[in-house]
Lab assay of single mutants.
Amino acid sequence: IDVRFTVNGLDVTVRVRTEEIAERVKELAKNGVDWREIQRIAEELNK
């Protein structure tokens, strides 16, 4: 599942395995978490 969001004007796409992880990623993006941090968290959750 590809999750797309915009952080500080940057369009970011993170690929995740499940809808649940996708929701977590969207939540982080909404809360203004840095995209590199979101990427790292997504990689952890995908394991």
Score class of each variant (00 low, 15 high):
residue 1 I to S: 04
residue 1 I to K: 04
residue 1 I to M: 09
residue 1 I to R: 06
residue 1 I to V: 10
residue 2 D to F: 07
residue 2 D to E: 14
residue 2 D to M: 06
residue 2 D to V: 07
residue 2 D to G: 01
residue 2 D to K: 07
residue 3 V to G: 01
residue 3 V to K: 01
residue 3 V to R: 01
residue 3 V to N: 01
residue 3 V to D: 02
residue 3 V to Y: 01
residue 4 R to L: 08
residue 4 R to W: 12
residue 4 R to G: 11
residue 5 F to P: 01
residue 5 F to V: 15
residue 5 F to H: 07
residue 6 T to N: 12
residue 6 T to A: 12
residue 6 T to H: 15
residue 6 T to R: 11
residue 7 V to L: 05
residue 7 V to A: 11
residue 7 V to Y: 07
residue 7 V to R: 04
residue 7 V to T: 10
residue 8 N to S: 08
residue 8 N to A: 09
residue 8 N to E: 12
residue 8 N to H: 08
residue 8 N to Q: 10
residue 8 N to L: 04
residue 8 N to K: 05
residue 9 G to L: 03
residue 9 G to R: 01
residue 10 L to A: 10
residue 10 L to H: 14
residue 10 L to S: 10
residue 10 L to R: 09
residue 10 L to K: 12
residue 10 L to W: 06
residue 10 L to Q: 14
residue 10 L to D: 09
residue 11 D to C: 10
residue 11 D to K: 07
residue 11 D to W: 08
residue 11 D to S: 09
residue 12 V to L: 11
residue 12 V to S: 02
residue 12 V to Y: 13
residue 13 T to I: 14
residue 13 T to R: 05
residue 13 T to S: 10
residue 13 T to C: 07
residue 13 T to M: 08
residue 13 T to K: 08
residue 14 V to G: 00
residue 15 R to K: 12
residue 15 R to W: 07
residue 15 R to A: 08
residue 15 R to Q: 12
residue 16 V to M: 02
residue 16 V to F: 01
residue 16 V to C: 09
residue 16 V to E: 00
residue 16 V to T: 05
residue 16 V to S: 02
residue 16 V to N: 00
residue 17 R to H: 11
residue 17 R to I: 14
residue 17 R to M: 15
residue 17 R to E: 13
residue 17 R to W: 09
residue 18 T to M: 02
residue 18 T to V: 02
residue 18 T to W: 02
residue 19 E to D: 11
residue 19 E to L: 11
residue 19 E to W: 07
residue 19 E to A: 11
residue 19 E to M: 14
residue 20 E to T: 09
residue 20 E to M: 10
residue 20 E to A: 13
residue 20 E to G: 11
residue 20 E to C: 11
residue 20 E to L: 09
residue 20 E to W: 07
residue 20 E to V: 11
residue 21 I to N: 04
residue 21 I to M: 08
residue 21 I to Y: 04
residue 22 A to T: 01
residue 22 A to N: 01
residue 22 A to C: 04
residue 23 E to N: 11
residue 23 E to D: 12
residue 23 E to R: 12
residue 23 E to S: 11
residue 23 E to Q: 14
residue 23 E to Y: 05
residue 24 R to S: 08
residue 24 R to V: 14
residue 24 R to G: 03
residue 24 R to I: 14
residue 24 R to Q: 11
residue 25 V to S: 00
residue 25 V to P: 00
residue 25 V to L: 14
residue 25 V to T: 02
residue 25 V to K: 00
residue 25 V to R: 00
residue 25 V to G: 00
residue 25 V to W: 00
residue 26 K to F: 05
residue 27 E to W: 04
residue 27 E to N: 11
residue 27 E to Q: 12
residue 27 E to G: 07
residue 27 E to R: 08
residue 27 E to A: 12
residue 27 E to H: 10
residue 28 L to T: 01
residue 28 L to A: 08
residue 29 A to P: 01
residue 29 A to E: 06
residue 29 A to N: 07
residue 30 K to I: 11
residue 30 K to W: 06
residue 30 K to E: 13
residue 30 K to D: 13
residue 31 N to M: 13
residue 31 N to C: 10
residue 31 N to H: 11
residue 32 G to K: 08
residue 32 G to D: 08
residue 32 G to L: 11
residue 32 G to N: 11
residue 32 G to C: 02
residue 32 G to P: 02
residue 32 G to M: 10
residue 33 V to K: 08
residue 33 V to S: 07
residue 33 V to E: 08
residue 34 D to Y: 05
residue 34 D to T: 06
residue 34 D to G: 07
residue 34 D to C: 07
residue 35 W to Y: 13
residue 35 W to M: 13
residue 35 W to S: 08
residue 35 W to H: 09
residue 35 W to E: 06
residue 35 W to F: 14
residue 35 W to Q: 07
residue 36 R to E: 13
residue 36 R to C: 14
residue 36 R to Y: 12
residue 36 R to L: 15
residue 36 R to Q: 14
residue 36 R to W: 13
residue 37 E to T: 09
residue 37 E to K: 06
residue 37 E to D: 12
residue 37 E to F: 02
residue 37 E to A: 04
residue 37 E to V: 09
residue 37 E to W: 03
residue 38 I to N: 00
residue 38 I to K: 00
residue 38 I to F: 01
residue 39 Q to K: 12
residue 39 Q to P: 02
residue 39 Q to W: 08
residue 39 Q to L: 15
residue 39 Q to V: 15
residue 39 Q to S: 09
residue 39 Q to N: 09
residue 40 R to K: 14
residue 40 R to D: 07
residue 40 R to M: 13
residue 40 R to I: 12
residue 41 I to D: 01
residue 41 I to W: 07
residue 42 A to R: 01
residue 42 A to S: 06
residue 42 A to L: 10
residue 42 A to E: 01
residue 42 A to I: 12
residue 42 A to V: 13
residue 42 A to T: 07
residue 43 E to I: 10
residue 43 E to S: 11
residue 43 E to L: 07
residue 43 E to M: 08
residue 44 E to F: 06
residue 44 E to I: 12
residue 44 E to P: 01
residue 44 E to N: 10
residue 44 E to T: 09
residue 45 L to P: 02
residue 45 L to A: 08
residue 45 L to M: 15
residue 45 L to V: 03
residue 45 L to K: 02
residue 45 L to Q: 05
residue 45 L to R: 02
residue 46 N to W: 05
residue 46 N to K: 01
residue 46 N to G: 08
residue 47 K to H: 14
residue 47 K to N: 14
residue 47 K to S: 15
residue 47 K to Y: 08
residue 47 K to G: 11
